[in-house]
Amino acid sequence: MSEALLARHDAVLLDLDGTVYHGARVIPGAPEAVAEVRRAGVPVRFVTNNASKAPESVAEHLRSLGVAAEPGEVSTSSQAAAAVLAERLRAGSRVLVVGTGALAAEVEALGLAPVRKMADDVAAVVQGHSPDTTWADLAEACLAIRAGVLWVACNVDATLPTERGQLPGNGSMVAALRTATDAEPVVAGKPEAPLFTAAATAVRATSALVVGDRLDTDIAGASAAGLDALAVLSGVATPRTLLTAAEGLRPRYLAEHLSAVTGRAGELEIGPRPGWRIRAEGDTLRVTAVTESDGVGDRLDLLRAVCDAAWRHGTHRLVPEGDDARGALDDLGLT
């Protein structure tokens, strides 16, 4: 029997929306899974690209859903952006903030001076999501960026999930300033490395595990930071997007939801599975169910096996051989 997944990793870095909750609804099993990680003595960090809320607010929301959380366990993209600024600027430097008061507070906490208007002594612009951002805010930032100051974006998420659906996110506002300035920001949040690196460093982890539902942010960010990732199917990722994922967007482990974090590493790892045989033939992968002592492998084992084969052989054209394989691929939406 393979070792426990938690025995391989000295911290768990959890994405929030799509992994722990969906807005105001907790994902079943998530509170219990977080509690099990804690009982195993493994530190937990809640890692979010949301730069509009302070860690206290994020922790309060988690607790309201039954997930034990303290503000010190929350890592936000606004914290990561402030850290990037502090590394590159002198103490006391003035930073033009486009975003919420929570972002301004993170900038100030690291010895910098947040301002809202362009001036000759502004050394940088930091941009995070705020529903109250106006054209006037973008105009001040545009002037500063065109003057050549450092520009740091908390994240470049094009959309923001809400109860009403996907709405414009910070990336949409960043795109407006890109168009107006022909400049590119330094990105602190996912999918870049600083946010995950800071979260791991905060708990002195050297082999942290990232758990997330988005390949283009969570898994890409883990890859950029040199960390292993567990992709869950409780949010954005689907069997199809996993099968066709490009290098850099491929997780090491795969599960239905966060509860699997307490499972066995070998059972969650993407790779060949005993219940399935995948045979490459030209640009085709032929899929066959194998009957062994434990019977036919389950659908997620099949997905782990076909992802492994597709990534190695550079093709995702699947041909089922037999009713069992056809039915399992149908369940995954891969036929």
Rank of each mutant, 00 (worst) to 15 (best):
T335K: 00
L243A: 08
D120I: 09
T284Q: 13
L65Q: 07
A33D: 05
N50D: 15
T181R: 00
I278C: 00
V125D: 00
V306K: 00
G101F: 01
D323N: 07
R90G: 15
T181F: 05
C307Y: 03
G235K: 04
R304A: 07
A193H: 06
P55V: 15
G72R: 14
A139E: 11
V232A: 01
A231S: 09
A119I: 12
A220T: 12
P161Q: 10
T288D: 00
T288P: 00
R304I: 13
R146N: 14
G41E: 02
P251D: 11
Q79N: 02
E3L: 15
R204I: 06
A328K: 13
L242T: 10
G282C: 05
E281M: 09
V152M: 01
W135M: 06
G221P: 12
S293M: 10
G111Q: 06
A144Y: 10
P161I: 10
R240E: 10
T76G: 02
A175P: 05
V67H: 07
A328Y: 01
A59R: 05
R116I: 12
G18S: 03
R264A: 11
H61Y: 01
A139K: 01
P185L: 02
G23E: 02
E163V: 15
T179Q: 08
A193N: 12
H22K: 06
A176D: 01
R8E: 15
A309V: 11
W276M: 06
E321L: 06
A310F: 02
L329A: 12
W276I: 13
A175T: 11
A119V: 12
R25E: 14
E32N: 08
A109V: 11
S64Q: 09
E163I: 09
S130E: 05
T206Y: 00
L268G: 06
T291N: 00
A193P: 09
A289N: 07
G171P: 08
V306M: 02
V122F: 04
A4S: 15
T217Q: 04
A136W: 05
P191K: 12
V58M: 00
L243N: 11
A220R: 13
R250H: 05
L242V: 13
R304D: 07
R8M: 04
S93N: 05
S2N: 10
A309N: 03
R312A: 12
